[in-house]
């Protein structure tokens, strides 16, 4: 057992966990943040994506002890003050989800994607979104409305960034 301390959704948490504990299990089982899902065992499906120190990672492939001290944001931590994140709003608006299982990972991947493209000043085209979604599998939506939602959220987030400046 090793002591792990992390900032999770802005709160400091400390737990004693076995060294083999995956970050996904740490979040789901230790912290009961069950919005992070596990859909495969080979890092392919992306249902487990969270943000670690501002970057998207697959939490099923990270050991909790290896990331003690990290700052982690999960799907439960992106809405603020009762206000949904623009990416969450866009997924609802465009019917970008059906069963909801891959959705949390899709939203976390979508936010990271938009942030990276906007930071680099690159246009997030339909083709770019489809390429960027390589590591996220959805079986329900045929991706049509997910791509539409991310396209739309990119616009909303850019508005948000400009408003903040």
């Amino acid at each position: 057992m090793t002591e792990v301390t992390m900032q999770v959704n802005g709160k400091s948490v400390t737990r004693d966990v076995p060294d083999t504990t995956l970050l996904s299990d740490f979040l789901r089982e230790e912290l009961r943040l069950t919005g992070t899902h596990v859909g495969c065992d080979t890092s392919q499906c992306g249902a487990c994506v969270v943000h670690m120190d501002g970057k998207a990672v697959k939490s099923c492939t990270a050991l909790a002890v290896a990331h003690s001290g990290a700052s982690v944001t999960t799907i439960e931590g992106i809405a603020s003050g009762g206000q949904l994140h623009p990416m969450q709003e866009a997924f609802n608006e465009h019917h970008g989800l059906q069963c909801g299982f891959c959705t949390t990972g899709m939203i976390m991947t979508g936010i990271d994607m938009v942030n990276r493209y906007q930071a680099e000043g690159k246009a997030l085209t339909e083709q770019a979104i489809r390429k960027e979604l390589e590591g996220n599998i959805c079986r329900c939506t045929g991706y049509h409305n997910i791509v539409k939602a991310i396209e739309d959220a990119a616009g909303r987030m850019s508005g948000m960034a400009q408003a903040a400046e």
Binding site: R28, L33, T34, G35, T36, H37, V38, T74, I75, E76, A79, L84, Q88, F91, N92, E93, H95, L97, G100, F101, T103, T104, I107
Partner: peptide, 19 residues
């Protein structure tokens, strides 16, 4: 009509069997 069930799914509050 936008889906009523979406809110719990997009906020990570869905309740699946493994949860």
């Amino acid at each position: 009509v936008k889906r009523k069930e979406d809110k719990r799914f997009i906020t990570g509050k869905g309740k699946y069997t493994d949860d």
